[in-house]
């Protein structure tokens, strides 16, 4: 019988090849696939195109892949907070494509749901509309944006079962469910892997049909970018 469960991150990412296009879930450092990123760093795979809302920070998240010079191109909506990223961009070592966040999300969603392209109002009249088809509906202009194509999607969930069904926690959900459906091969890492039957079907966020490999991750750091607290009193 086929099983989706693999023992660790190194096995999960073993066939990710040089030049692959990969989607990585997460918003900032929240909900990122920490174990898989570390495994990609150890594997040393090169010339990656990474589709991810952000590019991590210098020493965490996708920043680790950047430090190791494994990324050829970043496709993101916001890439601040990363000095190595800036250095590589200015020297021309790294290519970057900036995309409005909602368009980024919809291009992931479209990729996973058989929609080749869609019209969106975001970016009409700005420099990102250059070279794109513009069409008017009901007196308002829209841009044609195309679905992404990704060889692999790497995502992170809170709980998952051996069938690949997933539940997320808090705002760590973000891009993970839509990237899950978008990859030709989707690798899910979870904090807690349970046997089938343990998750209530009423509360599953991502159906296992989208997941090809799943493993229980270890030692999640869950680094916080902006720890803001209110007075206890």
């Amino acid at each position: 019988m086929i099983t989706k469960v693999v023992t660790n991150a190194n096995i999960a990412v073993q066939d990710i090849f040089d030049g692959a296009t990969i989607m990585l879930g997460g918003f900032g450092l929240c909900g990122i696939p920490e174990n898989s990123i570390s495994a990609l760093v150890s594997k040393g795979v090169k010339n990656l195109t990474c589709i991810s809302n952000n590019a991590g920070v210098d020493d965490f998240g996708i920043g680790l892949l950047l430090q190791n010079k494994q990324v050829k191109k970043m496709v993101s909506s916001y890439v601040g907070e990363n000095n190595e990223f800036e250095r590589q961009l200015l020297t021309g070592e790294l290519d970057v494509e900036l995309i409005p966040q909602g368009t980024l999300a919809e291009r992931c969603r479209a990729a996973g749901s058989g929609i080749p392209a869609f019209y969106t109002p975001a970016g009409v009249g700005t420099e990102i509309s250059e070279g794109k088809e513009i069409r008017e509906f009901n007196g308002k202009k829209y841009l044609l944006e195309k679905a992404f194509k990704a060889d692999f999607s790497i995502i992170k969930a809170w709980k998952g079962d051996s069938a690949g069904n997933l539940i997320y926690k808090g705002t760590a959900r973000n891009f993970n469910p839509i990237m899950a459906a978008a990859g030709k091969i989707t690798i899910a890492e979870v904090e807690e892997l349970v046997p089938v039957g343990e998750l209530d079907p009423n509360f599953i966020h991502t159906p296992g049909i989208y997941i090809q490999r799943i493993f229980q991750g270890l030692n999640y750091e869950k680094r916080i970018e902006q720890k803001t607290i209110r007075d206890e009193s």
Binding site: L29, G170, Q226, T228, I229, R230
Partner: peptide, 18 residues
Amino acid sequence: FPKLSEVDPDLINAGKQT
């Protein structure tokens, strides 16, 4: 914003604040 005892790394806003 959370109290120190309530901080949850899985719960942030769009400015990446807890």
